[in-house]
Design a protein around this nucleic acid. Structure first.
Lengths: 146, 146
DNA sequence: TTATTAACGGATAATCACTATCCATTGAAT
DNA sequence: ATTCAATGGATAGTGATTATCCGTTAATAA
């Protein structure tokens, strides 16, 4: 769960990818935020320290991270993908008012998987569970999204 | 759950939208398929009978249906949206091999909603549950997606 | 340490699903 | 039947993501 830069470098190399300052910087930025940034948010987070950073590099890096299991891609029903460095499969909640996306950790989903497997006849390999509502701070405000 | 064309017409009118042959045709096509088509699939389904149909009309119609509760929009992690005329909230499963998307009906999700509400402090209003795996026909074949 | 080279980063063009715009046509209220 | 705002179709525009190109760099070997 905790992933230091040495481990990230090892995983990159073990999959035949080079270890570059940009890739480590992207990983570091993603790991040190809880806001599930999209590519542009990551780009803007990195720009102050890496003025030469390119948005294309962020996309290419995230594609690699997704491939080799260093990040997962979220499709929360917005116009862009969001990224998450937490690799344990867990549900997400988005606030319809402020747009923030939170992790739901410690969610027990084995019962769900069994129920779905039984109802569907599929051999299940993954899942994405998204919930929508009002976050604690926004309850009572007027909706902005959806 | 069963929605005849008269009811569709009434719902459109009651929301201030006009009833047009195109809108009824789109609804009819969507209701009579189980494959969760995206806009282009719907467009191609309609083309033989409505040669003047426009892809833009499909998109505009689906946006209205989504607004007034005649269809729901799915984000299954593909490059396009899929649509579903079944309005009861229910999970979906996509086959990683053939790409088909199936409904999971009769899924009991009250326990999940309660669990998530407790873990998140959100006031929940909706959810989208997506599962991935191999459909019965594809089990044993080699993966095509993801 | 240097040489070599395939992979990489950055800039930018291209792609493609979706949306906005424009205008002739049409549903529906009078 | 008349009127007119809403609509459909054609098409241009948008914006997130991807592909391309080329000078640079990480990694391996000399």
């Amino acid at each position: 769960m905790i992933m230091d830069m040495q481990s990230v470098a090892d995983i990159l190399r073990s999959h035949g990818f080079k270890v570059t300052p940009q890739r480590l910087a992207v990983y570091d930025a993603l790991q040190n935020t809880t806001e599930h940034p999209n590519a542009e948010m990551l780009y803007n987070m990195l720009l102050p320290r890496y003025p030469a950073m390119s948005l294309a590099t962020v996309y290419k890096t995230m594609e690699i991270f997704d491939q080799i299991g260093l990040a997962q891609v979220l499709n929360i029903g917005e116009d862009s993908y969001r990224y998450d460095a937490r690799m344990e499969n867990h549900p997400h909640v988005r606030c319809n008012t402020c747009g923030r996306v939170d992790d739901i950790m410690e969610f027990e989903d084995e019962a769900i998987m069994n129920q779905v497997a039984k109802l569907s006849d599929y051999k299940l390999t993954g899942r994405q569970l998204y919930f929508y509502g009002e976050c604690p701070k926004c309850q009572g405000k007027k909706k902005k999204y959806n």
